[in-house]
Amino acid sequence: MSLVDGLGLALAGRLERTNLRLEAGTLTCLVGPNGSGKTSLLHALAGIGRSSGGTLINGEDLRRTSPARRAALATYLPASRDLRWPLHPRDLIALGGASPEQIDDYAALLELDGIEPRTVDHLSTGERSRVLIARALAPRPKLLLLDEPTANLDPLWQIRLMDVVRAEVAQADRAAVVAMHDLDAARRYADRLIVMSKGAIAADGGPDQVMGSGVIREVFGIERDGSHWRAAAEPVRPSADRRSSP
C-alpha cells in the first residue's frame, strides 16, 4: 500500500478530478505555469476550502481526523508569507502543533536562534519564510505539502532548504509534495516530477523522463538553450489533448 492516496481530488473551476498516489520516501516536485493548478492540488491534498475528494495517509482519512491529530499526518505551507499578529517565532511554530523538543530541533536546523528575540513583524521576508517553514516541518508530519518554499530565500538557503526537505523524506514513512518554479532545482531534487497545466496533470514521471519530453515546451512555452532556458522560438499552441503523457 502506498503512503498517501489522494482520491477524486477536485476544486471547482481550478482543479479537474485527479487521483494521486504517493510512495513513502519520495519527494514529488510540482511545476506548472501560474494558474495551472499547483496550489489547488496542494489544497485538495490538504483538505482546504471547497476542495473535494479525500486524502488517505496510511489508510487514515485526513479530513476526518481531529485538529490535534492533523499536524502529525500532513502540514501545508502556503505561498503567502503574510502573518496576522506579531508573535514570537517559537510561539508561532508551536501553533502548528509541534512539541517543545521538535521546536528546538527545527529552530536549530533552520538557524532561528539568532532571530528569536524579535517578533515576526520585525523579521526580513527570508527570515519569516524560515520561521513559517519550521512551523510546517516541526510537527514531523507523514506528508509535507510545501507551496514555493524557496521563494524569498537567498541562494544558499534555497539549497539548504531543499537539502533539509530531501533529508526529511529520506526517513521512512514520509513524503513531500513541493510546488516550485525553478525547473532545474525541481529536476535535481525530485524523485518524481508532476507538470500541471490548466487544472490537470499534464505529465507525471521521473524528472529526467519528464524534462526530456516535449511537455515543458508545450506547457511553459520555453525550451533549453545550452545551460539555460529561453522563450520558445515559435509561438506554442498547446495541443488539444493536454493530458499527453511523456
Binding site: 490538504a46 481531529s66 485538529p67 501545508y76
Partner: peptide, 19 residues
C-alpha cells in the same frame, strides 16, 4: 480561543489543521 489563535497562521493553514 484555540482555532482563533491558529488563524494567526492564515486561513489556509488553519483549515489544513482541520478547523
Amino acid at each position: 480561543a484555540g482555532p482563533l489563535d491558529r488563524l494567526a497562521l492564515g486561513e489556509e493553514v488553519a483549515e489544513s489543521l482541520g478547523h
